[in-house]
């Protein structure tokens, strides 16, 4: 459970150049993150609070393989992204970096600025004031394991120390 947090709502095709602009790609992560999504919502990086959730339309994270796109969101404290669909490389990167990502057909009813609580284990979003929770697709068990370990690196560290490599 995330507790009650703010939702930041975005549209379709949010691309990796919006999430991690090329111009700041060789800057340190905190500088890069300060520009995260600025071309779509100038107030986002300044005002987002740890725990907040992003909701979006189709094809979130489209574009480059740069994982700073997911890293910047994590750095800013975003606790999960819920979208109608994700670009494949972004989806893998997010899981590998320990950022939960949920596919959800019903993000249209979520509004920017809503407050909500996300149940990660049950893949359910409860929006304040709404009677029914919004069901998301559960993350496959194998990937949940990587997320639970905190991302791919800690997951591999566990495997290494267990001698499974």
């Amino acid at each position: 459970m995330t507790g009650m947090v703010r939702i930041w709502k975005f549209g379709d095709d949010i691309d990796t150049d919006a999430l991690a602009p090329g111009q700041y790609m060789n800057a340190p992560l905190d500088q890069l993150s300060a520009h995260c999504l600025e071309s779509v919502n100038a107030g986002f990086a300044v005002n987002v609070k740890p725990g907040d959730i992003i909701a979006a339309g189709f094809n979130f994270g489209t574009g480059s393989s740069r994982e700073q796109a997911a890293q910047a969101l994590r750095h800013l404290g975003v606790s999960a992204v819920i979208a109608k669909s994700f670009a494949g490389i972004f989806y893998r990167n997010a899981i590998n970096l320990g950022l939960p990502v949920f596919e959800c057909a019903d993000t249209d009813q979520i509004r920017d600025g809503d407050t909500a609580e996300l149940d990660l284990a049950q893949a359910k979003l409860v929006v304040a004031g709404d009677a029914d929770p919004i069901a998301c697709q559960p993350i496959p068990g194998f990937l949940m394991q990587i997320l639970a370990d905190g991302g791919l690196v800690p997951h591999l560290e566990k495997r290494f120390s267990a001698g499974k490599i």
Partner: peptide, 18 residues
């Protein structure tokens, strides 16, 4: 297919990917 840097590090360590 394309992957990000963390996943690539996993591949470079293990020679495998899911």
């Amino acid at each position: 297919f394309g992957i990000g840097a963390t996943e690539m590090a996993g591949v470079l360590l293990t020679g495998e990917i899911w």
